[in-house]
Amino acid sequence: VLKALERTRQLDIPDEKTMPVLMKLLEEAGGNWSYIKLDNYTALVDAIYSVED
């Protein structure tokens, strides 16, 4: 979780936006981090930006 938060902080995305999206992605992935961690957490960042749209 810390590495995911560090990555999104680099992009000026607050933890308050990151955590709900991260928890949803983890739930959808059955707790499997490998998809979320791919390409420096690209799936997480993309999911956060899609929620903002």
Rank of each mutant, 00 (worst) to 15 (best):
N32P: 00
P20M: 12
E52S: 12
E16I: 10
Y35D: 11
A47V: 06
L11M: 08
L22M: 05
P20L: 11
L25D: 00
L26E: 00
Y49W: 12
D39K: 08
D46Y: 09
K24E: 05
Y35T: 14
S34L: 11
T42C: 08
V51P: 07
A29V: 12
S34H: 15
L2P: 08
S34F: 15
L11Q: 04
D46F: 09
W33N: 01
T18V: 15
D39P: 03
Y35E: 12
A47F: 06
K37G: 13
A47C: 06
G30V: 05
L11A: 06
D39A: 08
T8E: 02
L44W: 03
S34Q: 14
L26F: 05
D53P: 14
P14T: 06
A4L: 04
S50K: 14
L11G: 03
K17E: 07
L5C: 07
G30H: 11
E16C: 14
V21S: 04
T8V: 05
N32D: 15
V45F: 05
K17W: 09
D39W: 07
T18S: 12
E27Y: 10
D39I: 02
L5D: 03
K17T: 12
P14G: 06
L26D: 01
Y35G: 13
E6A: 09
T42F: 13
T8G: 02
I13G: 03
K37I: 15
Y49N: 12
D12T: 07
A4W: 05
L26N: 00
A4M: 02
L5F: 04
N40T: 02
K3Q: 15
V21A: 07
A4P: 03
G30F: 08
Y49L: 14
N40Y: 06
R9W: 03
D39G: 10
I48P: 00
I48F: 04
L11E: 06
P14I: 04
D15E: 03
Y41K: 00
W33L: 04
G30Q: 11
Y41L: 04
K3L: 13
D53N: 13
R7T: 06
D12P: 03
A43S: 09
I36W: 03
A47K: 08
E28F: 08
L5K: 01
S50L: 13
Q10D: 08
K37H: 10
A29P: 02
N32Q: 07
V45Q: 02
S34M: 12
E28R: 10
T8W: 05
T42V: 11
S50Q: 13
M19W: 11
L5Q: 02
R7A: 10
T18F: 04
D46Q: 14
A47E: 06
R7E: 06
V51A: 14
I36G: 00
E27M: 10
V51W: 14
T42D: 08
Y35S: 14
E52C: 12
A43C: 07
L38D: 11
S34V: 10
D12R: 14
D46L: 13
L2G: 12
K3Y: 04
K17M: 11
L44K: 01
I36N: 00
D15T: 01
L25C: 04
E27T: 10
Y49Q: 12
D39F: 08
M23C: 11
K17D: 07
L26Q: 01
I48H: 00
E28K: 11
P20R: 11
I13C: 02
A43Y: 10
L2N: 13
T8I: 07
A29G: 08
L22D: 00
R9S: 04
E27H: 11
N40K: 06
D46C: 14
K24M: 10
L5I: 05
I13H: 02
R7H: 09
L2I: 13
G30Y: 08
A43E: 05
T42S: 15
T42P: 01
Y35W: 13
L5R: 00
I36D: 02
